[in-house]
Write a protein that binds this DNA or RNA. Sequence first.
DNA 1: ACATTAAAGGACAAGAATATCTTTTATTAT
DNA 2: ATAATAAAAGATATTCTTGTCCTTTAATGT
Lengths: 145, 145
Amino acid sequence: MAIFSKTCEYAIRAVLYIAHKSALGKRVGIKDIAAGIDSPELYLAKILQDLSRKGIISSVKGPNGGFYIENGSLSKPISDIVEAVDGNALFYGCALGLKQCSEIQPCPLHDQFKAIRDQIKDLLFTTTIGAFNQELLAGMLALKK
Amino acid sequence: MAIFSKTCEYAIRAVLYIAHKSALGKRVGIKDIAAGIDSPELYLAKILQDLSRKGIISSVKGPNGGFYIENGSLSKPISDIVEAVDGNALFYGCALGLKQCSEIQPCPLHDQFKAIRDQIKDLLFTTTIGAFNQELLAGMLALKK
DNA sequence: ACATTAAAGGACAAGAATATCTTTTATTAT
DNA sequence: ATAATAAAAGATATTCTTGTCCTTTAATGT
Ligand code: FES
Ligand code: FES
């Protein structure tokens, strides 16, 4: 098992793709994005519809339409995407699936896992959607397989 | 999404349950285990069959039969269970689902994620199945919801 | 030997995640 | 106004995960 669902992996890659194109004032169509991140086009369309409804990305229909990200949204954390798609189990859930993670009745992995989980939170809560724009434009980071 | 599959959560909880009972020389039946870790009995039976085939736990049929763990196996790492059930994507896979995690064509989260992934590996590779036996016997750790 | 017990094995069912297809709605350019 | 474009929406298909049921096999005690 990976750390994110496949849907969430597509979502993050797509949002980062849109973000760096969007920083240039360009809107991008679903075909472009799907090709850019190597994902099934029609499935990705569903995911982006959802992110659009949730206000993480924006879109316009019609000619020259497409997806884009408000400048203000570039400073939103990656965790917003994760939470929208996978929920917050990764941030607050018990590693071993107990109903709730608790200090009082901890599971065997609790102490060590909590430290790791805090770092995952830290990574996702403090890294913004726009953080990689330069490196993405420079081609130093990959979004496709 | 949680960090382990539900199947893997059941597997780890069950193995730890068997381990601490087993340290007392007791074998435990599937009913006992399922009640002890709060899991669907028949599904758990399938999971334990699999772990038994893979040599992580042992079993005997018939009266006074049940599951147990060889003393030697108590020193096996938890990662053996995870790998048997969820594979090794968590240890070696790319956070964003790229075909392979690479230093040369890293995904945006690579640098930071690698550090976290290394800690997950460290936790699971160095923590043994038997490590929690005392605390489990003392009732200081929980395995059920 | 025989009956009883408990896991192993195979088949099936329900649900969720992933993926595709078709129609509708909004926007733009002519 | 009209035609063309592109996302939204709704419906359906496929695959994987999770869960259950039923029969078989192996071990034990009498
Ligand atoms: S109780 Fe399991 S991680 Fe906290
Ligand atoms: S390339 Fe994505 S985690 Fe290494």
